[in-house]
């Protein structure tokens, strides 16, 4: 397995939306490299013909009926909002595409 570079940490931080400081990049690169190096052992079983387990218990088909339940009031919904306007969550300009 390849080691984790500073650039890779920067890429991961971008994907995860973390504005890491330059010193953090180095710090984390070393630590993540250690951890990945240690846990990479799991790939020993990569070739084995074993089904993966994503859920600890074998439950299936847990569903609810299509029945309306009470919603929060808009006041409750917005109660934690850092900013609001016109009963909506107010956020800075979205750098979308156009």
């Amino acid at each position: 397995m390849p080691g984790i570079t500073r650039e890779e940490v920067a890429h991961l931080a971008r994907l995860a939306r973390l504005e890491l400081k330059p010193e953090e990049l180095d710090h984390f690169a070393g630590q993540l490299d250690d951890i990945i190096g240690a846990v990479a052992r799991v790939s020993e079983v990569a070739d084995q013909d074993v089904p993966p387990t994503s859920h600890p218990l074998p439950l299936t088909n847990v569903m609810r009926a299509d029945e309306v339940r009470p919603s929060l009031t808009p006041e409750q919904a917005l109660s934690g909002a850092p900013a609001q306007e016109q009963q909506r969550f107010k956020v800075p300009q979205i750098l979308g595409e156009e």
């Binding site: 397995m1 940490v9 931080a13 387990t53």
Partner: peptide, 23 residues
């Protein structure tokens, strides 16, 4: 970041996928 790494394309099978097999 560790999780982002383990799930990213190219690493998923070796890491997350294998971990699920270990499970």
């Amino acid at each position: 970041m560790l999780g982002t790494y383990a799930l990213s394309s190219g690493y998923y099978d070796a890491y997350y996928g294998s971990a699920q097999k270990v499970r």
